[in-house]
Nucleic acid binder design. Structure first.
Lengths: 177, 177
DNA sequence: ATGATCAATGCAATTTATTGCATAACAAAA
DNA sequence: TTTTGTTATGCAATAAATTGCATTGATCAT
């Protein structure tokens, strides 16, 4: 279970609310972590009980109150010790591939439509990731050096999406012919 | 939940035991589905209760009995109707990227060691997938046509792994310099 | 005005997945 | 010869993730 550590990693960079974390996962960080809001809020509660994060309620004008969480020393300790152990390789469960594998039971039109739908999502993601990369590349060498590791993860998103698109285009061709 | 459908898809190709399915997922099909043995056995039981698959016990010499499951007409129906709906995009939760993102809290040696470990696993997988591809490419055009859709999923594995390796090599360089 | 979306959080129930433990017989390697 | 690995399955408990439902006040478009 590393939702816990995914959250700690983000809070170590910057104190955030559950909603902030959710947005990060849904937007820019979706290529490496995904979670529903309920999962995040529950986990934040547990992390607070365990003393790994602290919670402050911030009032806002015109908007609901915000609970801002901040990592504690003990949280940093937990994170550091987690980092010292090796992580499991990423589990893959891809329903699209299941569908294609059994695709002879449905029509090519159905398969193509499905692929096209996924394709447009992946294209959007790639554009977004490349925009973030462009911003990074405009930083000074010192700032680039500072954000090198997050940038490396961004590169994973970009290379992964590019490969996905290559595959999808090749597959669409193959199904059509 | 599409473990159910992943299993049905495989059983639609060929009757198998839970152990057979497990091996398929762990070996060749790991790039598109993963499950623990307990999950598979439980799911098979449920599918049998729902009448989507049938079970026959086969005795073997020198080996434990085998429960061979076969998809039923009703199972094919369920699968077909599942195929007619669109599937959700693949959820990604990659602990390795979490670790890299927060990598400033640990040593570069640790990060490099971790990357190298994952690298060797991915290399192995890629070699294995390419071997399967070679076999496919030696088939006659008719047989190739017949297995076109599974081949497309195999290509996803190959392109995905290649991109993963490219990324890892680039990342290792970046961390080292 | 009326419905949609965003901001922000939460409970409760259910479904899925993981972990730990257990069995049993054969084969191959150390 | 002892241990490790393969074949083959399972229960029970726990942990993690999803789904459904619910609130509130703002703003934005039709």
């Amino acid at each position: 279970m590393s939702l816990k550590h995914a959250i700690l990693v983000l809070l170590e960079t910057e104190p955030s609310s559950g909603y902030d974390l959710l947005k990060q996962f849904n937007n820019s960080l979706g290529y490496f972590w995904n979670a529903k809001h309920q999962q995040i809020y529950q986990q934040l509660k547990l992390l607070a009980i365990d003393g790994l994060i602290d919670c402050t309620t911030e009032e806002q004008q015109g908007k609901p109150d915000k609970k801002v969480y901040k990592i504690t020393t003990s949280g940093v300790g937990e994170l550091t010790s987690w980092l010292s152990n090796s992580v499991k390789p990423n589990k893959i469960n891809d329903a699209l591939l299941v569908k294609l594998y059994g695709g002879h039971l449905t029509s090519n039109e159905n398969l193509l439509k499905e692929l096209e739908n996924h394709l447009s999502l992946h294209k959007k993601t790639l554009i977004q990731l490349r925009q973030i990369e462009q911003k990074y590349l405009k930083f000074s060498p010192e700032v680039q050096e500072k954000y090198k590791l997050p940038y490396i993860t961004l590169r994973r998103g970009i290379l992964g999406e590019e490969a996905w698109l290559d595959w999808a285009l090749e597959s669409i061709k193959m199904i059509k012919k």
